[in-house]
Design a protein around this nucleic acid. Structure first.
Lengths: 200, 200
DNA sequence: CTGATTTAACAACATTGTGTTGATTAAGCG
DNA sequence: CGCTTAATCAACACAATGTTGTTAAATCAG
């Protein structure tokens, strides 16, 4: 049943994997060619195509390995003894990203894969932040930086719009807008200091 | 001050713009070459380089035009008479996306520019949804689909992590995790039907 | 351990896209 | 009208792609 995987295959995939991650740190993803990867890994370029059909496929494989490592450490938390009680998955995530900062920075920053996505989310966030500063009266202040709040809302809106249009718009625009508004507004309310409920 | 732009320049840019958007609907962004674009626009390939230095630059220009159209319609709302009171920017956004569905679907779907981003957000959302179903007792139900809630949280987490690592981690992981948790949890609480506060 | 079989790795190939050049044509501007 | 400059065209060297058939190495049966 469980056929032994050829040692060469494992070795080659690992080499390609490491080569891509190494190159990602020092160069934009878009500017990394398959030639570069195989050259870095000291493999023939044709060998690449025996394992992956595109750069994207390799990147996904490499990333999933990274994520699985993160998820595994989170799962360990669930089963094992919690060292500190405040070790939430969210905190683990930020710690994990900090640990592999060069990689994630290369991957998520301006000139990486998500160039356009970044622009879109940034565009939404900038608009939201401007609107926030207009609408917030002077006597109300936020307990968190407005930028974080804007990024939160922009990310949520982007993800939901993206999911919605990709899945052929299974709900009406009105319904989706209501969901976004309620989720973001309730979250926002928690961060406002000095609102009328606080003046008890 | 305001020098008149040569009519030929405007014409060429508009043609390139339209050509790219037209091609985006029927082909993946990655598989569209500059040759294709100029061919579709009936322009010489060298002409492209007189205006843009890369495909990405053209795409950004084309998208910003789209967005500006959306923002303009929102701004109209703010100054003009509101036809219906419930026309929020969020609703306008979903309507705008629905109107240009083929373009946005091509742009945001699996095989578009944001292939990797999509995978990452999807990965986070799937994990979150699984965790949600585990932790939610049977007697508590959501007033919205769990998938929407997961996408909301995943989008928020992604945007914040992305912003954080891109800006060289200006806050501690602990602080960031607290922000994410509070914003998302408060939003989530609003969507839960049957929690103890509701059983008054 | 050994030979037969499988298949990964390789070198070489034709093809396609890129980015730039310099000379020519033609459209817009005052 | 004449000046300016955008667009065209042909040609270029270069880089990356994806696919050949061949060679070498790992696996497995006996």
């Amino acid at each position: 049943m469980k056929r032994k995987v050829d040692r060469r295959i494992l070795r080659t995939r690992r080499l390609l994997n490491e080569a891509l991650l190494a190159l990602l740190v020092e160069r934009d993803y878009e500017n990394i060619t398959i030639q570069d990867i195989t050259e870095q890994a000291d493999l023939n370029r044709a060998t690449f195509y025996l394992h992956y059909s595109s750069k994207e496929e390799l990147l996904v494989a490499a990333l999933e390995e990274q994520f699985d490592e993160l998820v595994a450490s989170i799962e360990d938390l669930a089963t094992g003894q919690p060292i500190w009680e405040d070790q939430t998955p969210e905190l683990m995530t930020f710690r994990h990203v900090a640990e592999h900062a060069p990689l994630y920075k290369a991957l998520l920053s301006e000139r990486g894969t998500g160039y356009i996505i970044h622009r879109i989310i940034g565009y939404i966030a900038a608009y939201g932040e401007a609107r926030l500063q207009e609408e917030l009266p002077a006597n109300i202040e936020l307990s968190f930086p407005a930028t974080l709040l804007s990024m939160h809302a922009a990310g949520s809106l982007f993800a939901l719009v993206s999911w919605w249009v990709t899945n052929d718009m299974p709900y009406s625009p009105e319904y989706m807008a209501e969901v976004v508004l309620r989720m973001c507004n309730e979250g926002t309310r928690a961060l406002i200091v000095g609102s009328e409920t606080a003046v008890s």
